[in-house]
Design a protein around this nucleic acid. Structure first.
Lengths: 208, 208
DNA sequence: CCCCTTCACGAACGTTGTTCGTCTTACGAA
DNA sequence: TTCGTAAGACGAACAACGTTCGTGAAGGGG
């Protein structure tokens, strides 16, 4: 069951339809409902299996900040590695699957090792998890081709066309940031966000 | 056209279907394609209209950090105010709509006023926009009832059941953070994330 | 006054997730 | 060994979605 789903996850989440999975098992769509309540539950099982691949560092208080970054990087990596799975991470309201809980507990442990109170660690972990999901979802859009070349090009033309229709001093900064948004700067943006967030956490922790 | 859509946005994004909109205009679904290319374009128009309601502060370098927070708060507020619209903010790969550009330019201006380089401001603005979208999407899930009481309760039981099946010292922190995740702490979590991020930005800016 | 172009629309197509009723299969009791 | 029953799997169908095709009507230029 889950094995067949992972195979399909190899060709994109949109391809994971009840009919497609049933076809892979050489049966009809209705048969799947004997093993799974609905598609959402199936998606949740897939997500848990994917998240189980993310490594959990054992806490070392001396370098807790670097370990937090590694934890987030690991989550993002496994999410992006499975095309489209980041989307289901958003559709699930409250993630209570085993892998999610392990990741959450690991994050809390690291943050507490950094000197944060439990409440601070909770809020920081929530923010980091939110950002990880957001980045992974966005990155999934680039690396897997749900955006075509022509569409992107048309967007660029649309942007410059609109900006030129206004007084040029209206967008002095926007006109110059295009170079920073290539695919190569993706990880650079992630590292910047992590650095900023952890620098802020240290400031907060120092006040305790 | 857009007017009829906003009316439907008043009862949720899922209710905004081509057939429903056509029904509101007392016509058939095919007629809408004379005004809009497809549903994605219609969603983009809606998002732009919503985002236009977010206020743009005129930069005051003395309190740039507070203005950054206000900008993010404003974006989140208008997104949450229109049920489900935050979802389309995710589906759009590259937002080049007028309102999006104005918001982005405003953010860049504030960050530059805070002493960041253009590259730093770009990355910070990207991270903040990502977080704003993420928070707004998540908050939309709570405030508008796509999650029912029974389902949430079942999730809670599922979580404690799983955690009790493991050695109790496996989740020492997770077991205690439930109290911090009530609906009342939602804005508190947002403010914490904003404080942390801006504290980090000041650290980065101080090194320039 | 007539023709032709352009726009709007009803109906239909191909998908999707999910459900209903039937059929097969396997196991325990006589 | 044989029969009855319960449970599981499956084919077909339903409702709803976004989108497209071909026809119809309306309106302006010759």
């Amino acid at each position: 069951m889950k094995t067949a789903l992972e195979i399909l996850a190899g060709e994109g989440l949109d391809a994971v339809t009840m009919r497609r999975v049933a076809q892979e098992l050489e049966t009809g769509p209705a048969s799947l409902y004997a093993h799974v309540a609905n598609k959402d539950e199936l998606a949740e099982l897939m997500l848990d299996a994917v998240l189980a691949e993310a490594p959990i560092p054992d806490p070392d208080p001396a370098r807790w900040d670097e370990q937090v970054k590694e934890l987030v990087r690991g989550q993002i990596r496994v999410l992006v590695a499975h095309p489209g799975i980041a989307r289901v991470a958003w559709d699930i309201a409250v993630p209570v699957t085993p892998s999610s809980l392990r990741q959450g507990e690991a994050m809390l442990a690291l943050l507490r090792a950094g000197g944060l109170t439990l409440k601070q660690a909770t809020f920081a972990g929530d923010a980091l998890a939110l950002y990880a999901k957001a980045y992974a979802y966005e990155a999934s859009g680039w690396t897997w081709g749900d955006i075509d070349e022509a569409e992107t090009a048309k967007r660029g033309e649309q942007m410059v066309a609109y900006m030129r229709s206004l007084p040029p001093e209206a967008f002095p900064n926007m006109l110059r940031i295009g170079e920073f948004f290539s695919a190569e700067t993706a990880t650079e943006r992630l590292e910047f966000a992590l650095d900023v967030h952890l620098a802020g956490l240290k400031v907060v922790a120092a006040k305790n």
